[in-house]
Design a protein around this nucleic acid. Structure first.
Length: 559
DNA sequence: ATTGGCTGCCC
DNA sequence: ATTCTGC
DNA sequence: GCAGAATGGGCAGCCAAT
């Protein structure tokens, strides 16, 4: 199949806004797709380069891509950056520069095939060692050399996983069902269990429902975790799950899935990265403490201070989670505990369709807790909002993030963010920050300032100290208004970055304050969002570093 | 041998 | 992670 | 309410530059 056909489809999808129309277009496209590339095409349409279970990635980000585009089109770095700022999209930038490319540039006129693109992406993902960056660039440039401008737009976007067609996995799932006349539920199920949309498309095409039914859960094949939805408070959360539910402490760690096939234990993260080697403490403990051969368990890996038993800041867990070297040394300083909360598979039996109540029971049955190593997440089953609220407050006092509220009758739905699992977190104080800079946005934020650099005053209110950036919490109208407002305050501009005269104050909400190696205050806000623009305040009224420090100390008490 | 930019992935 | 928006 | 697309901080690893 010609890549140009796919590019054509991408472009149509980009123009259509109706989801139904997108689905039928994709369905039609998949139906006429040759069998040998239908898997690749399905993946590509869903803005993926490799299946969900495949840990490979291209290792090309926006900076490298700019160089690739510059070299491939004979442009300068600043031309590319300038055009990117204006178009808000590196794909469009490549397309535009290719159109302008002098005809004298050497062109390879063989048309690009979808299969070749896939193979080249594989090669890009696999190069490593000295000269790897150059080789990645050369491979990507090879694709662009053969691409027509429109193809270049999508090759670049695909490589960056920024397709911007308004299509992702679940849209493609529906399209697969429609294309091959199979049930949507079966497609969803096959996808969630195989974590391979390409495989699902191919099986649906070649073997139909019968084939899809054969795809099943098995150890060592990690699946996407079920996701929680935010609730405002425990009372609302409890009501959402039908008045009665399981209330569990929400720990600030990394979500892990622990698999065993009877011989080996492996640990996977939420994005299906294999972190077995980084967490030998978990592997050893699980081998000792779980009375089953084959299993898939889920829990939170948390860094604990061995002296106080209190949870440590999330940043410390990051020292452990993807470490490849000096693991034993760091392990002593920052031990990791596993707190289990779900059980998806035990000795040949899949539990994804079993209610949570029963899954928890099975978990309790097979796990022998060992203090400081493997524990079950603390759980209270209640229909009393007061009891739930007590649990919430106790969790906060202990230095945890909040609570999860779970529907006891719910089955396990991988990759779905729904009402079967709700998270409740407290809202911290807000901070009034002076806006001192910004960054031009991309995609749907092209031509707008997409995020704003924030600062607070030092003790003497003389100097402004950076505390982070904010790029969410503003609606489209505010975004427009702010850009217009700040355009008059620009004092300096380089690339996509802008500096403003310090005049405007943002009230910003956040979950936490962390030590920062990057910002001049030495602190940074975690999960900042704009609450409102303080039109009523002048820059001199903004908060000072003392307030930041005070909040940081308060949080620190708990660790 | 060390530093620093970039990338991807934890949240 | 949080948030907003079109369907 | 779902699905998609904007956007946040910080860490380790990798590779290139010094």
């Amino acid at each position: 199949m010609y890549y140009s056909s796919l590019a054509e489809a991408f472009e149509r999808l980009e123009r259509i806004s109706s989801r139904k129309a997108k689905i039928s277009l994709i369905a039609q496209f998949l139906r006429q797709c040759p069998e040998d590339v239908v898997d690749t095409v399905a993946l590509f349409l869903a803005n993926q380069v490799f299946p969900g279970w495949d840990p490979r990635d291209l290792g090309i980000g926006s900076k490298l891509m700019r160089k690739v585009i510059a070299t491939a089109t004979g442009s300068t770095d600043s031309e590319v950056t300038e055009l990117f700022k204006r178009l808000g999209d590196l794909g469009l930038t490549a397309e535009e520069l290719l159109k302008r490319r002098k005809t004298s540039t050497l062109l390879d006129s063989r048309p690009l095939m979808v299969g070749e693109v896939r193979e080249t992406f594989e090669k890009i993902a696999e190069v490593e060692g000295e000269g790897a960056v150059k080789r990645k660039m050369r491979l990507m440039m090879g694709l662009l050399a053969r691409a027509k401008p429109k193809e270049a737009r999508y090759l670049v976007r695909q490589a960056l996983s920024e397709l911007r067609t308004g299509v992702r996995e679940s849209t493609v799932e529906e399209a697969i069902a429609q294309a091959f006349g199979v049930s949507r539920k079966l497609v969803e199920r096959a996808h969630m269990l195989s974590n391979d949309l390409g495989l699902v498309a191919k099986v649906a095409m070649t073997k139909g429902e019968e084939g899809l039914r054969e795809i099943d859960l098995r150890p060592m094949r990690p699946i996407k975790p079920m996701l929680a939805q935010a609730a405002r408070n425990v009372k609302e959360a409890l009501a959402e799950v039908g008045g009665k539910g399981a209330v569990e402490i929400k720990l600030d760690g990394a979500r892990v899935q622990v698999h065993s096939d009877g011989e080996e234990v492996r640990v996977y993260t939420r994005r299906i990265e294999d972190v077995t080697h980084a967490l030998p403490d978990i592997v050893e403990a699980v081998k000792d403490c779980v009375d089953a051969d084959e299993f898939i368990l889920e829990g939170e890996a948390v860094a604990i201070n061995p002296e106080t038993g209190k949870p440590r800041p999330f940043q410390e867990l990051l020292h452990r989670i993807k470490r490849k070297y000096d693991i034993e040394e760091v392990r002593k300083e920052i031990p990791v505990e596993l707190h289990l909360f779900d059980c998806l598979y035990v000795d040949g039996e899949s539990l994804v369709d079993t209610p949570f109540r029963e899954r928890r029971r099975r978990l309790e049955e097979i796990v022998r807790e060992r203090e400081g190593e493997v524990m079950l997440v603390e759980q209270v089953i209640t229909d009393d909002p007061k009891e739930a609220a007590e649990m919430f407050h106790r969790a906060l006092e202990m230095g945890h993030e909040g609570v999860m509220v779970k529907d006891l009758d719910a089955n396990y739905t991988p990759g779905v963010r729904g009402k079967k699992m709700l998270k409740v977190k407290p809202v911290l104080e807000t901070l009034d920050c002076v806006v001192i800079g910004g960054i031009w946005g991309k995609g749907k934020r092209k031509g707008l300032i997409g995020s704003y650099l924030l600062a607070v005053w030092d003790e003497n209110k003389e100097n402004l100290l950076e505390v982070g950036k904010v790029g969410t919490g503003m609606d489209d109208e505010t975004l427009e208004r702010l850009t217009k407002m700040f355009e008059d305050l620009i004092v300096e501009e380089s690339g996509r970055e802008v500096r403003f005269k310090p005049e405007v104050v943002f009230e910003v909400e956040f979950e936490d304050i962390q030590k920062s190696p990057k910002y001049s205050s030495g602190f940074a806000l975690r999960f900042p969002r704009l609450v409102r623009v303080r039109d009523d305040l002048g820059p001199e009224d903004a908060d000072t570093i003392e307030k930041v420090r005070r909040i940081y100390e308060e949080v620190l008490q708990k660790h």
